[in-house]
C-alpha cells in the first residue's frame, strides 16, 4: 500500500499567544514548532498499516524551511520519504488553495491512501483533508479511529457522537482524517534520526505548482478573548453552593 500522510507544522500547543505587529497572525519569534497532534496519529496509523501490509509511507507538508524539521521527524519515526512544498507565504492561501497545492504535488504519486489529522491545533478548520479528497476525486471519511484492509478496499471505524461508532467500507484510493488518541504514538529514537538522514526529502517550490493564491475566505482580524480562565469559587451554604454549581453545569458547561 502506498500511503501519503499530510502533516502540518504548528506552534507548540501551549504557546504564549501574542498578536503580531500587523495584527494578522500570532508573533512567531520565540515560538517552537511541533508536528500537529492528530497528524502524528495519522502518521502512526500509516506506519502501522505499512508494518502490517508492506508498502511505502510518504510524508507531505507545506510551509517555510523550518517545516523540513517536522518532515525529518516523521522520517525518523519511520516514514520512507518526504515531500516539502516550500513557501514563505503560505498564509496567502486559504484551505482550498493549500489543498490545491497539495493535490498538485502528489498528483503523480498515485497513492492508495491519503491520511491526515482531523484538524490542526492552530487554525482548527478540520477541512484540508476532506477538501483534498474532493479535489483528487476520491472518497473520504473523517474522524477515523481504525483502518483495516478489506476485500474491496478499506474498512474503517468512524467515531460518531456520544459514544457511538460506525464501520464504513470504501474502495481505494481514499482519504481518511484521523482522530487523535486511539493508538499509542511511538517516540522518536536516535536510530530513527540517524536513518532519516539518508532518506529522500524532495523540496517542491509552491510557485512551481501552478496554483494561484486567490482565497475565497479571509482571516480579517484577530483578538484575544477577553475572559481569561480563573477559578470561580461558589460560596454560600452547601445547598446554595450546590445550586449555583448545577446552574453553571447547565448554562456554562452544558453537561446537564
Amino acid at each position: 500500500m502506498k500511503i501519503i500522510v499530510a502533516i502540518k507544522q504548528v506552534p507548540e500547543r501551549d504557546v504564549r499567544i501574542r498578536i503580531d505587529g500587523a495584527g494578522r497572525w500570532i508573533a512567531l519569534d520565540d515560538v517552537e514548532f511541533r508536528m500537529n497532534e492528530s497528524d502524528a496519529y495519522a502518521l502512526e496509523e500509516a506506519l502501522l498499516l505499512r508494518e502490517a501490509h508492506g508498502g511505502e509511507v510518504i510524508v507531505l507538508s507545506a510551509g517555510p524551511e523550518r517545516v523540513g524539521q517536522t518532515i525529518r521527524e516523521a522520517l525518523a519515526k519511520g516514514a520512507d520519504r518526504g515531500i516539502h512544498i516550500v513557501s514563505d507565504t503560505l498564509a496567502d492561501y486559504d484551505a482550498l488553495g493549500l489543498a490545491r497545492l497539495m493535490a498538485a504535488a502528489i498528483r503523480n504519486e498515485a497513492a492508495d491512501l491519503i491520511l491526515t489529522g482531523l484538524q490542526s491545533d492552530d487554525l482548527g478548520l478540520g477541512q484540508t483533508g476532506v477538501i483534498l479528497a474532493e479535489l483528487m476525486g476520491i472518497p473520504h471519511s473523517s474522524l477515523i479511529l481504525k483502518i483495516e484492509k478489506a476485500d474491496t478496499g478499506l474498512k474503517v471505524l468512524r467515531e460518531l457522537e456520544d459514544g457511538w461508532f460506525q464501520h464504513i467500507e470504501m474502495p481505494t484510493p481514499a482519504l481518511l482524517t484521523i482522530q487523535s488518541g486511539n493508538t499509542k504514538l511511538r517516540y522518536a529514537t536516535l536510530m530513527g534520526i540517524k536513518k532519516a538522514k539518508t532518506k529522500e526529502l524532495r523540496a517542491v517550490p509552491a510557485d512551481s505548482l501552478g496554483v494561484a493564491p486567490t482565497p475565497v475566505v479571509l482571516l480579517d482580524s484577530l483578538a484575544l478573548p477577553s475572559r481569561q480562565k480563573t477559578t470561580q469559587i461558589l460560596s454560600g451554604t452547601p445547598a446554595e453552593a450546590a445550586a449555583a454549581l448545577v446552574e453553571k453545569l447547565q448554562q456554562e458547561v452544558r453537561v446537564l
Binding site: 500547543r13 499567544i17 492552530d122 475566505v217 482571516l219 484577530l222
Partner: peptide, 10 residues
C-alpha cells in the same frame, strides 16, 4: 483559534 486562546474574524 488555538483551542480557544485566540478569536479570529473571517
Amino acid at each position: 483559534l488555538f483551542q480557544g486562546k485566540l478569536n479570529g474574524q473571517y
